[in-house]
């Protein structure tokens, strides 16, 4: 965490300052409180309005249904395309959520309120990213059983759930960064997918290959490389976003 992070608690008039225990611990505590505040705010607001989740969910269901009826596939062909359809659905609905998450802040003027807070801006990034990730996971938690029934495939395999966790984490990680870049653009609805999809290709390829391998019951040796790739990209994307977020938000 960078030195501009909030340090120990700020005293209000007539109140004692929070004792400066150990500097690093206090800074880490303040950093986590800022992350959790942003996450709590996004979850509480979404719980009340359900704007984001309902849009993502309806969109995902429609995509799954359209693919199901449009392709008219036999069992083998379904197994072959299922992982691709699953991740196309996750990516499109995720993009919808990422776009709204930041544009709502901008349109309602609350983005400035966040940026005025004396916290390391990476804390704002992690708060927003965790919120976006959770929203994607909630949608997947509903879509996967539907997908299993429609495609008659075991989408709820424990290892496939790990792929979903890792894939959506990477996508939300890089997506939150790029959504905060696109939010300043007038054509942000178009800009985000144009920026995001090429950058997220490695995550998507790895996720599709890992999910596909699991559904086809391939040996672990064949699919473990895709898990490694997913973990590697998640770490790299999130580290880059952590370092770049401050600059991305500058006007």
């Amino acid at each position: 965490m960078r030195p501009s992070s909030a340090g120990e608690g700020q005293a209000l008039p007539g109140q004692p300052a929070r004792p400066a225990a150990s500097g690093a611990l206090a800074a880490a505590g303040a950093y986590w409180r800022a992350v959790s505040a942003v996450l709590w705010k996004d979850l509480a607001a979404e719980f009340r309005s359900r704007e984001l989740l309902s849009a993502m969910l309806v969109f995902s269901l429609l995509v799954v249904l359209i693919f199901n009826f449009a392709l008219q596939l036999d069992r083998v062909a379904r197994e072959n395309v299922a992982a691709g359809v699953l991740w196309v659905t996750a990516v499109f609905s995720g993009t919808l959520g990422l776009n709204r998450s930041l544009s709502q802040e901008k349109d309602r003027g609350s983005l400035d309120g966040l940026l005025l807070a004396p916290v390391d801006r990476s804390a704002l990034y992690f708060g927003k990213m965790l919120g976006n990730w959770l929203f994607m996971l909630v949608v997947q938690a509903i879509i996967l059983p539907v997908f299993s029934v429609l495609y008659n495939l075991p989408m709820l395999l424990p290892l496939n759930l790990v792929v979903v966790l890792l894939g959506t984490l990477g996508y939300a990680g890089v997506g939150t960064l790029l959504a905060s870049m696109a939010v300043h653009s007038r054509s942000r609805d178009v800009m985000l997918p144009i920026l995001l999809l090429p950058v997220a290709v490695p995550v998507l390829v790895a996720a599709v290959q890992a999910s596909g391998g699991l559904l086809e019951q391939r040996a672990w040796d064949e699919i473990s490389q895709w898990f490694s790739l997913l973990i590697g990209y998640d770490v790299i994307f999130i580290a880059v976003a952590f370092m770049a977020f401050d600059y991305v938000l500058e006007e």
Binding site: A6, L12, Q15, A37, K41, A117, V119
Partner: peptide
Amino acid sequence: FYARLYDLPNS
């Protein structure tokens, strides 16, 4: 929410 962002104790 803003009190938490500003890390205000006993707010």
